[in-house]
Design a protein around this nucleic acid. Structure first.
Length: 128
RNA sequence: GGAGUGGGUUAGGUGAUCGCUUGUUCCCGUUUGGGCCUGGGGAUGAGAGGAAAGUCCGGACUCCAAAGGGCAGGGUGCUGGGUAACGCCCAGGCGGAGCAAUCCGACAUGAGCGCCACAGAAAACAUACCGCCGAUGGCAGAGAUCUUUCGAGAGCCUUUGCCAGGUAAGGGUGAAAUGGUGGGGUAAGAGCCCACCGCAUUCAUGGCAACAUGGAUGGCAGGGCAAGCAUCACCCGGAGCAAGACCAAAUAGGGGAACGAACCGAACGGGUUUCUUUUCAACUCAAUGAUGAGGCCUAUCGAGUUGAAGAUUGAAAUCGUGAUGAUUCGGGAGAGGUCGGCCCGACCGAAGUUCUCGGGUAGGUUGCUAGAAGCCCAUGGUAACAUGGGUUCCAGAGACAUGAUCACCCCCAGGUUCCUUGUGAGCGUGGGACAGAAUCCGGCUUAUCGACCCACUCCAUGU
RNA sequence: GUCCCCAUCGUCUAGUCUGGCCUAGGACGCCGCCCUUUCAAGGCGGCAACGCGGGUUCAAAUCCCGCUGGGGACG
């Protein structure tokens, strides 16, 4: 897929105002592993922000939570509908649950909200 | 072999796939005119810690005017050394714990002030509750003695009670009570005297010193608390990379300059029509069109038709004449506001336009990692460490980079099967700590599954 | 990241500087009893706390050190 060569610097939300806007105007969907909020944007791109607060744990745990989610977002970014800003709030159990379960849960929530094109198994996991 | 003490090293490994940050280097470039930002792909190299943590100390670095002296305030506190510096480290002394290796210790101060609840006689400068004594002195009683005028008297004797008084041994209180043990001594006692121990002063010897050892003298000098105030010695100016330096939009505001009002003088000069030309809008050709991975700015495309608005620093023709004008140049003064009933007077002194200056926000760049650096060797030193030589280059972010999945091996638990029943093999399960650089170093403290190495101590056994 | 501050019953607080009558006081709340026909108000009584671990001291909520948990300032 040659059209997925989005620079990674524009794949994630960076500015504080963007986060605040999503938190203020977005809609919220909780699951047992994470909460997600999203809203429309003026641009044509879709960006994802990950918010891990201090209550999540110490620095190692916070970094790990963000890495796990970045991985998931990278693998699914080509499937996302354009023109959305999405903010994810991971929860504690993410550190112990397995990768496949998280991936399924993520896809399921986004599909139900119509944020993801309905196709495809995992791009990289499990090729025997 | 077991138990233990001190120190050091390490922080699961290998491979595959998909990804992240960054250095070097090579290639790729489009098109509607121009420009900007982020580029894309390949090769190759690097990419968290012993504590990166807590922010408890100490420095480097930067700014604050100089960072020198003093005060205030703070810190440290046996001695000597190491160091850029330290509250750290090394060596030694003293005290304490342990059979020992070894470990622990804010471990300076005969001045002054303050505090020491309750209990106790008394809590810090002296005193005396119970008790003991009552030698000495006084009073009273009894006995004996002597004198006798037989009423009594005397005081040298013995004894009892009370008092003056002596005492700090014993009791009791308390966390703490005016050296301890033994003997002499005494009315009872007491360093009152003696011996040993402790203590103080002083001298000698050893040691750089803390201090140790020995002698002499004194005859108990005097409680605890300075992590209470204080004293003494030494150290510390304050803030911190969000320090600081540079570039610098938009908006508001600030400083400066010019023009600018009335009036005077001079100059210029207006309308209509046609053409030319500029701008805008709509429509047509021509299209939710035009790119290179994305984003942005600007010009638009490029010709025609129609309409509107301008231009005389475009042209021509014609009408017209000194009215008009937000025109230009020169002179010129102060329009306006406040105080004030008004004048005089005093004070302030501009809207607007153009230009410009500096501060500075967003944002960007830098500080930003070659260092009191690591490793090896030699020399000096008991050691901490120092000096010299060689060699290596090893993260640098700003929503914050090391991850995910799989396979095999290693370690640890407990499950099950097999047999050759044990330091056995196989199978599948779960787990592999504490923890993530953010200006950089030296320490300390705290967290931590284990593995390995070195030195030493004690016990047991063998030779 | 750098620099600061705080911690006492369920809640808000006093006491901490200057250690001891602290067995930690007060208010609101909770529980029980009295009063009242009943409820409220009122009266009486009770329960309930020094964040944790060391040290100094005869003695620590208080002084010193180290942790833990909250909160704040700086762009």
């Amino acid at each position: 897929m040659s059209d997925t060569h989005t620079p990674s610097s524009e794949l994630f939300l960076k500015k504080k105002e963007d986060f605040d806007r999503v938190k203020r105007e977005g809609r919220r969907r909780p699951t047992s592993l994470f909460n997600v909020m999203f809203c429309l944007t003026s641009t044509s791109r879709t960006r994802v922000g990950i918010v891990v607060g201090k209550r999540f744990g110490k620095a190692v745990a916070r970094n790990r939570g963000k890495r796990i989610f970045r991985e998931v977002v990278r693998k699914t970014h080509g499937l996302l509908v354009k023109g959305q800003d999405i903010v994810v709030f991971p929860k504690r159990p993410i550190l112990t649950c397995n990768h496949q379960a998280l991936y399924d849960s993520w896809v399921k929530v986004l599909m139900r909200e119509g944020l993801m094109s309905p196709i495809k198994p995992l791009p990289c996991v499990k090729q025997p």
